[in-house]
Design a protein around this nucleic acid. Structure first.
Lengths: 139, 139
DNA sequence: TTGAATGCAAATGGTTTGCACTGAC
DNA sequence: GTCAGTGCAAACCATTTGCATTCAA
């Protein structure tokens, strides 16, 4: 049995063709370090000849998100992008010129965030930090 | 002439009733530390008896944003909120239970962000950092 | 068999736009 | 008087949902 099927069962989702296919696509994207929108996933399915409705793509991605298989990001621009959930937390910097996405993690910042929330009597449930950047001119 | 009129002229916008009214509302909200959605502004206008179309509210807020009079934030949840642009940069924490918004600024984090961008060969154009938080249970 | 999953199309909700009318200069 | 600004309704776009059909278990 394919790895995808096992992962689906593990999170309590019935093994169906759309779910397996979409999971495969997300895994492929992950190895390339890419973040896909629902539309991207839909197109990828079309290209491989798999006829899955866009609505199903949204439904499945949402289920995957709830099952913590994928993580949803809301960068500027109105649409969401998804990536396979990884055990290691990380934030993103997005190049405003090329759209390139770089992932990073910084212990100092994470630490400060918790301290700041604490100072205001809160605890952090989640956070998003996106740096919109531009390639520096080489001198 | 009211202060609002001068501000509008300064940024090259013709002085019209909707623009003056909306600017006043944004200023009032600012003194209360509030962030308003287009809908909020629209409702505020209605309450005062000023009949301005929702479309105009969007158009004016967008113009204000381009003129750098107001700043637009895209928190989770699909809709944008606006606040008067301030010279001092700050980030936000949003309570997931009450919607309460707290502004904060932390030099340590700002510093690290620049260092991290630099490490990847980028310079920061802009950034968004939002902490989604929950009031801590008092023990 | 049988309830869950899917496809399709229609609905949604925030935001934008086309166009004729209005108003600021 | 003119052209930018506005109101209204229709259009948009990403996403969600209702419902009849299909399918995994």
């Amino acid at each position: 049995m394919a790895i995808e099927s096992q992962e689906l069962k593990k999170v309590g989702l019935k093994v169906t063709l759309p779910r397996v296919k979409i999971l495969q696509i997300m895994e492929t994207a992950a190895t390339e370090g890419k973040h896909l929108s629902a539309e991207d996933v839909y197109k990828a399915l079309m290209e491989v000849g798999d006829d899955v409705g866009l609505a199903t793509v949204y439904r499945v991605l949402t289920q995957f998100e709830q099952a913590n298989l994928v993580t949803r990001h809301n960068f500027e621009g109105g649409h969401s992008v998804f990536e396979l959930t990884r055990e290691d937390h990380h934030d993103h910097m997005v190049c405003t010129e090329t759209g390139e996405v770089v992932e990073f993690f910084d212990e100092v910042i994470e630490q400060r965030q918790h301290e700041l929330a604490e100072q205001h009597g809160f605890e952090i449930v989640d956070h998003s930090m996106v740096l919109y950047v531009r390639r520096k001119e080489k001198k």
